[in-house]
Design a protein around this nucleic acid. Structure first.
Length: 466
DNA sequence: ATGTCC
């Protein structure tokens, strides 16, 4: 008996040595070579059946090798992407298409769509919609879990609130920037902070303090709070046709959501060590597994937390104005939903995409100096009942900073009569696609019912104020 | 997007 006999049976790597060692013991026990080879074949056929005795170590190694192969096979990408709908292909850079192509090759993917504001992101492109079977992809949602929009209309005649007063209200009642929270007496409470879910995971228990400190705030980057004029051409939202003073906000789940995202992305990547490098950032968690369930719970909490941030922002501003909001519209655009697709319940990831079921209200902002739109979904199945979440970048942050001059941005703001507080050059209106173009590409996804024109905007103080 | 570590 030698190594040749063993490798001929198909043993590989560490299993060769272990099989040889076991075979030597059996030879000493007086068995013939053919008898031993027969035993080895049986171990090979059913390693799980050898939990003791001479073959135990070999069987354990075989089981481990098999598990690794299964994992590799389950993580293997399809040779070609599944087909998916693209809205506004002429507005979408090739890099975003490539990222979507990779997502459509995941073994867990069943359907997808790309919205006209799409651009390159981490993992799934921004503007990507991905439906999987029994799998959640943390980077299919992104770092800002639950990132969302809220609009409120106020019973204040347009023109009554002056620019200076609006500026003062935003400076007093909103907070922006990484790590930022309300301090002292300015800090408010919210029911979401008292949900029992916070106690159900060590991670959530750990992040509760941060969530308490940051509730009611806005983040950085493209987050904003602005006063503007809402125009309704026809009666809707429980309001008569006409013009209303309105507040529009874009915020997310702040440091809490970011840490949830990073934690579960790490777990997902650890679960798929052999995944194709092109899809590494799309590593998933089985939804019926412990980690997948934990992500689901934490993600939905982050979604409610993000809406709580908006809730407090709008409530504060209305209170400061001494009024009660007439109506509110809100939607999350970074989240996962269970959704019926054909005959199947799929796990629909929207990463920068507005849910747009038939009749569903949504908000699609333009840029700091362009109008945003209140829309009603048309329920397009091929788009998985989705629409764009904004205009979408046409220049990356670095490209915007190196291409655009402050003067150009200031001229754009002046022309549109917009007063800006904070805001970096990388958020310049010129860094975004034309919202009119983006809307024109999704006429079969949403119908516009209202237009919001901003006139005082607050954003984070970027690296370079405009 | 976030105060670079869950």
């Amino acid at each position: 008996m030698n190594g040749k006999h063993i490798t001929k049976l198909g043993f590989e790597k560490k299993a060769v040595g272990l099989a040889l060692a076991a075979a030597t013991l059996r030879e000493k026990a007086g068995l013939e070579r053919d008898e031993i080879l027969a035993e080895l074949r049986q171990v090979q056929a059913n390693p799980a059946g050898y939990t003791g005795g001479v073959y135990e170590a070999l069987a354990a190694e075989l089981s481990a090798q098999r598990a690794e192969l299964d994992l590799k096979a389950s993580a293997a990408l399809r040779p070609a992407p599944l087909p998916y709908g693209v809205w506004g292909a002429d507005l979408i850079e090739p890099g975003a298409r490539s990222q979507m192509d990779v997502a459509m090759r995941l073994p867990v993917t069943r359907a997808g769509a790309l919205m006209p504001d799409a651009h390159v992101g981490y993992g799934l492109p921004i503007g990507g919609v991905l439906a999987t079977e029994n799998a959640v992809i943390p980077y299919g949602v992104g770092v800002d879990i639950g990132c969302s929009m809220m609009l409120s209309a106020l019973p204040v005649p347009v023109g009554q609130l002056g620019v200076e007063e609006a500026r003062a209200l935003l400076l007093r009642h909103t907070r922006f920037g990484a790590g930022v929270g309300f301090e002292g007496r300015d800090r408010e409470d919210h029911p979401v902070l008292h949900e029992s879910v916070w106690g159900e995971q060590p991670l959530l228990r750990h992040l509760h303090d941060k969530a308490v400190a940051q509730v009611g705030t806005s983040g950085s980057g493209n987050h904003f709070v602005e006063f503007g004029t809402l125009r309704l051409a026809e009666a809707d939202l429980g309001l008569e046709a006409g013009e209303y003073l309105a507040v529009l906000s874009h915020s997310g789940s702040r440091g809490f959501g970011a840490q949830v995202a990073n934690h579960f992305t790490t777990l997902a990547q650890r679960l798929h060590p052999t995944i194709d490098p092109a899809a590494k950032k799309l590593a998933w968690l089985p939804l019926d597994g412990e980690d997948g369930q934990a992500y689901w719970q934490a993600m939905n909490l982050a979604g409610r937390y993000a809406l709580a941030n908006h809730d407090l922002i709008h409530a504060r501003l209305a209170r400061a104005l001494g009024v009660r909001e007439l109506t509110r519209v809100s939607n999350s655009h970074n989240l996962v939903w269970k959704q019926q697709v054909g005959s199947q319940e799929l796990i629909v990831h929207r990463k920068g995409a507005t849910p747009a079921q038939a009749g569903q209200l949504g908000l699609i902002p333009g840029s700091m100096a362009d109008p945003g739109f209140v829309v009603r979904g048309l329920g397009q199945p091929a788009a998985l009942h989705s629409a764009s979440h904004g205009a979408g970048r046409q220049l990356g942050r670095k490209a915007a900073a190196s291409t655009l001059a402050k003067k150009e941005v200031q001229a754009y703001l002046k022309q549109r009569g917009v007063t800006l507080l904070g805001g970096g050059i990388d958020e310049a209106p010129q860094a975004y696609k034309r919202i009119e173009d983006v809307l024109a590409r999704q006429g079969d996804l949403v119908a516009v019912i209202g237009q919001f024109t901003p006139w005082v905007v607050r954003m984070d103080t970027g690296s370079e104020d405009v």
